[in-house]
Structure formats: C-alpha cells, structure tokens
Amino acid sequence: MTLFLRQSWAIAAKDLRMELRNREVISSVGAFALIVMMLFSFAFDPSSNPEARSMSGGLLWIVYPFAGILILNRSFGRESANGCLIGLTAAPAGGGAVFLGKTIASFVLLFTLEVASLLVFKVFYNVSWTGSSATLIAVLLLGGWALASTGSMFGAVTANNRLRELMMPVLVLPMVLPALIACVQLTTLILAGEPIGESFIWMRLLVVYNVIFTLLGATLTDFVLSS
C-alpha cells in the first residue's frame, strides 16, 4: 500500500474509532432516519395505498442526504477541538490524503445508515427488492460515495468557518442534486420491481459524478488546507 493510501486509511480509521467510542453521530442520525420514515409511513399509509410505492425511492433519498449532512458536519467538526486541523495540515499527509480519509470514514457511516434504514423501510412500506439486490447495493454505494465525497470537499472549504454547520447543506445539497436525482430514479424502479432498462444511464451518471468529485475534492482540499 502506498504512503498516500496508508495515511488516508489512518485518518479514516481514527475518525471511525472516535465515532465507535462516543457514538454521537450514529445515534443522532439513526434516530432522525427512524422518525422521518415513521412519519412518512403514517402520512402515505403504504399498506393501503399502492401509489406510495412509486414514491418510495424519493422518500428514502430524502432521508439519506439530510442524515448525511449530520455525518458530514461532524467529520471536519472533530478536527476543530484543540486545533487538530492544524495538526493534520502540519503533517506530511497532504490535503488529498485528508480528503480521502474523511470521505472513507463518512462513507462507511453513511452506508451503514443506508443499509439499516433500508431494512426498517422494508418493514414499514412492505417493499421487496428480491432479484435486484446487487443493483440496489450498487446504487446505495455510489449514492453514498457521492454524498461523502461532495460533503468532505465542502467540509474542508468550510472547516474554519463559524457558520460551517449552516453552510454545509446550502453548499452540498445543490451540488449533489444530479447524483440524488439519479439515485431516486434507480431506487424507485428497483423497489417497484421494474427493470432498469434504459434508465441504466443514471448509473453511468453516478459513476461519472463520483469520479469527477473525488478528483476535484482531492485537488481542492489540498489547495484549501495549504492556503
């Protein structure tokens, strides 16, 4: 493993270890996701209203980005105590490794949330994805990475800003919108049991989005942290 990847993994492992120790993000986003899905299930009553299934992808992808913002805010927020961000900047890791490490840690937490809330969603909405599990997991992975990489990029930009927690959703959500639209389209088809067919173009969009924003994030974070 190259030094760059070892440094990135060290940063990700440190963030995950801290989260496992105090569980401050997992518990709050878990509660948020559960409450929103419960409220939606009362509002749309999916057991008696089959139309609700056509909205299921949209409902899930309302929960993920807002829960994701909570995770992403905390990612660089961890570095604000004791001037730890300066410690990271002073180390020979480079902004690219910091970006990748932060993205990996946020992605692991986001993906855990996605899988856990999908299981709860299955119970509330009586949906099934048998036969499309691999495609659904691919959508969750690509959508999770899109949120984590875009959020980490703006996390670095706003790291020293007093209004960081307010600015994150304002900056991240419009930027990640193309990826979210792709995720909604694909998830809705999968949960409705329909073939992906021509909508596979949304999957390609997700891949291209992730490649662009991962490269952009690594470059921009390096510039932001060094200036």
């Binding site: 440190k14 120790r21 105590a81 730890c84 300066i86 002073a90």
Partner: peptide
C-alpha cells in the same frame, strides 16, 4: 518540509476521545 519538521504549537493537536 513538513516531513523534516516536528512542531509543538499553541493548540496541542490531540484528540480527546483517543
């Protein structure tokens, strides 16, 4: 340059939860 330098700054740059 950072590789060659050890720095003790104003903040201690330590993580309280570790």
């Amino acid at each position: 340059r950072r590789r060659k330098v050890g720095i003790l700054g104003h903040g201690q740059w330590l993580y309280d939860d570790l």
